[in-house]
Design a protein around this nucleic acid. Structure first.
Length: 536
RNA sequence: GCGCCCGUAGCUCAGUUGGAUAGAGCAACGGACUUCGGAUCCGUGGGUCGGGGGUUCGAGUCCCUCCGGGCGCGCCA
């Protein structure tokens, strides 16, 4: 929580150890420089002038100059009450003030199923969207279908499909150089044979022909990707076709607009974007001398669509690491259109490394050694798959150990968290079974055990976690918080008997704490798109 | 060669934007229920935060430099 006083930045944070209080500030140490006095003396002076607040039990100055606040138990107790009162809404906020944000993610080329190499952006983009919605933004989840006329991967894929098709018709045709070897290409070719027989036998085996073949299965490819995304628990609001930008003339209009703004010029028979004027290293070709637009021209047209036509306040692109070098170009294109470049935010996630038998598996779609995400989901379950993808910061590489993932019995953090929730449900069932009396207004002041206090701390912090994770674009903070909360709850369960007939008031108070914890776990798992099981 | 990301316990990773004694999970070893779920809990060992220099009250965090790994650098996407 950074603050500012006398032009000096200081912050308020949680001390590393409970005995140091509930909140701490370094303001005295920061001000010491300006005041030219010892930090400790400044801290003492500030402390003397602090107004008393009913929730602050006591204030301490600790070397080298921290001011630590110990809050009264009432503060923590109110969080339990608030959590129970707000239920599913606990943790949600209106910070986003209804601003419209578009999150474009996955957007894998429509040339095959979603696989472990390009799937990481899925859970990430989805949970980021959840976080933005939870903090009051209006979010559109969008998939950009890279089916544009110049996509060379489509050419290769189409040519591979054509070759498989002809092979099925009995012709001795080799796969093209670097062609797609995956089984699914043969299956797709078979579908064409089944549906339309040999009527495409004489399609010329050139670029045009490859494209023709791609379009025979284009809808099928999108359907395949949509199904894979749905099986990952991801639903897109919009599936946007790159080809539609070319068909509608939007690409030409975008190039014209850039020229009009003097952000593009002609040279060597091509049209260039003045990218260097907007922070890129060199100018970029928008339209080749052949007259064919490049990918950046489509992206400019798409940006016009996003910012100028649909009017999103903010747009987030979630890209794989191979696109890192493309960021300045996109930002330049956006700026060249007259849109504030900070409204276009690009998040690059790092690679996923596959381990089998402790050895990295090389992933190459072309060699057909892809591992479809559907296979992983089938083997380790949707919950574990999503949780696993979300445990690491997007900046960090992610290791996916196949052998570990295949073993259903293997300990997985997601089970640890889910078990905490199942345990809570079990306690609640026990309450019903025993006819335990539930008090309307539990005496929360009876929750004085340090571990009870710890659990309450988590409940208090949860709303701030959500807003922090949203602001930092850091879904992994949710998984870490979930594990930490689960651990603290298990400790509480171990040390504090919830249902103690001889102490009905304490039992009622602990039950309230249990219920509030269950609520936070459900809200947390809900944001992650992971189920909160009633029992396991 | 240039750009981006990474380097923290045996392994995989956090580290709240510069704070207090650097934390988890797995792995290893040793313990704990007559009652709410043992998929749990408690304890032990394990670190020159890749190396060096700098900035300051204070650096895993910021700057410089070197080393090591990943990715990218086309009128491809």
């Amino acid at each position: 929580m950074p603050q500012e006083v006398c032009n000096v930045a200081f912050d308020v944070s949680k001390p590393p150890r409970p005995e140091l209080g509930d909140f701490s500030t370094n303001v005295a140490m920061v001000l010491a420089k300006v005041a030219r006095r010892a930090p400790q003396a400044v801290a003492e002076a500030i402390t003397r002038h602090l107004a008393r607040h009913p929730l602050v039990e006591r204030v301490e100055v600790v070397a080298p100059g921290f001011i630590n606040f110990h809050l009264s138990p009432g503060w923590l107790q109110s969080a339990v009450a608030e959590c129970l009162e707000r239920g599913e809404a606990y943790g949600r906020s209106t910070l986003g003030a209804g601003k419209r944000v578009q999150v474009e993610f996955v957007s894998a080329n429509p040339v095959g199923p979603l696989h472990i190499g390009n799937a990481r952006g899925g859970p990430y983009g989805d949970v980021l969207s959840n976080l933005l919605e939870a903090t009051g933004y209006e979010v559109t989840r969008e998939y950009y279908i890279n089916n544009g006329p110049e996509n060379t991967q489509l050419q290769t894929f189409g040519a591979s499909l054509q070759a498989r098709y002809l092979q099925l018709l009995g012709e001795d045709v080799p796969l093209p150089e670097g062609g797609y070897q995956g089984e699914y290409v043969i299956e797709l070719a078979q579908e064409i044979v089944d549906r339309e027989g040999d009527r495409h036998r004489d399609v010329p085996r050139d670029q045009e022909g490859a494209r023709t073949f791609f379009w025979l299965v284009a809808d099928r490819m999108v359907e395949m990707l949509r199904k894979d995304c749905e099986s990952l628990g991801i639903h897109f609001d919009v599936w946007f076709s790159e080809q539609s930008l070319a068909d509608s003339g939007a690409v030409d209009r975008a190039v014209a607009l850039l020229k009009e703004r003097d952000a593009a010029y002609e040279a060597d028979g091509a049209v260039w974007l003045r990218a260097t004027q907007f922070g890129d290293e060199e100018d970029r070709v928008l339209v080749r001398s052949s007259g064919a637009p490049t990918y950046i021209a489509s992206d400019a047209a798409y940006a016009v669509n996003k910012f100028l036509e649909r009017g999103f306040d903010h747009v987030i692109y979630v890209w794989g690491p191979d696109h890192a070098g493309y960021v300045p170009r996109l930002k330049a294109a956006v700026a060249a259109l007259g849109v504030e470049p900070e409204r276009a935010e690009v998040i690059i996630y790092q690679t996923v490394r596959f381990l089998r038998g402790g050895e990295p598996v090389r992933l190459s779609k072309r060699q057909g050694s892809i591992i479809p995400i559907s296979e992983i989901i089938e083997e380790v379950g949707l919950d574990a798959t999503r949780f696993f993808f979300l445990m690491r910061s997007v900046d960090a590489h992610l290791d996916f150990d196949l052998d570990l993932a295949r073993r259903r019995t293997e300990e997985n953090p997601v089970y640890y968290v889910q078990y905490a929730h199942a345990r809570i449900r079990s306690i609640e069932r026990e309450v019903a079974a025993r006819g335990f009396e539930v008090t309307q207004a539990p005496r929360l002041d009876l929750l004085t055990d340090p571990v009870e206090r710890e659990v309450m701390r988590f409940l208090v912090e949860y709303p701030e976690l959500v807003s922090d994770a949203a602001r930092e674009r850091a879904p992994h903070r949710l998984t870490h918080f979930a594990v930490d909360l689960a651990r603290t709850f298990h400790q509480f369960y171990d040390r504090c008997r919830v249902l103690a007939p001889e102490e009905p008031e304490l039992s009622a108070a602990r039950l309230a704490l249990v219920q509030a914890t269950g609520q936070v776990l459900r809200n947390l798992l809900g944001l992650l798109g992971v189920t909160a099981p009633e029992q396991m």
